[in-house]
Amino acid sequence: MKLIVSVKRVIDYNIKVRVKADNTGVDLANVKMALNPFCEIAVEEAIRLKEAGVASEVVVVSIGPTAVQEQLRTALALGADRAIHVETDELPEPLNVAKLLAKVIEAEQPGLVILGKQSIDSDNNQVGQMLAALAGRPQGTFASEVKVEGGKVLVTREVDGGLRTLSLDLPAIVTTDLRLNEPRYAKLPDIMKAKRKPLDVKTPADLGVELKQHITQLKVETPAQREAGIKVDSVDALIDKLKNEAKVI
């Protein structure tokens, strides 16, 4: 079975984001970029499925400017077999990403597609579900355990208040949650080998997809700062503030 993993290049999670002075977005100039953490987990899961003999090939896909090839090389160093770069000027919005991926899937015919549940920049949490809808396939989102057996995939999902397990017909779409696995490190010899693994570049036109704008970002601002606190003089006053002012109890 072939696996497809889609990955996104995002700002490194630990970097403190700075909103640009003109409010057009977040300053990404010379900022450290990395694989989106949920995508890293998706890559790891795919490689583990390959190591377990469930999958025969892992293809990693990323969409965006040339720079995303860095993250594709990282995924190749971690163990993916080949990469597809869908080249666009900017990072397209989720529905466009889902449409591009749907075309890749149509061509590649994987048994399972694994994606991160959301990216830590736009926090949309949409692509996997949209892709499943477009491909007309079942989905197992926010996975904390993935087992492939007998033409089905059992996905344990993290839901509000606990865990829920679904059995999905293959091919299926799975999105990863944080507890699915702990990604490995890229090892030096593999980093060197990854430079020679195949990486195909395609354009949206090659895939027959026209990118369309659905949502316009008008402005990006810094969130309101925490206001200076106050001292209360009694337990009664504290309870009153928490009930009536902060409304948290």
Binding site: V26, T216, E221
Partner: peptide, 15 residues
């Protein structure tokens, strides 16, 4: 909120 709440985006739907 975007970037885990470290920035707030104002967005307009075209649909």
């Amino acid at each position: 909120p975007i970037y885990a709440g470290n920035a707030i985006a104002t967005v307009q739907s075209q649909d």
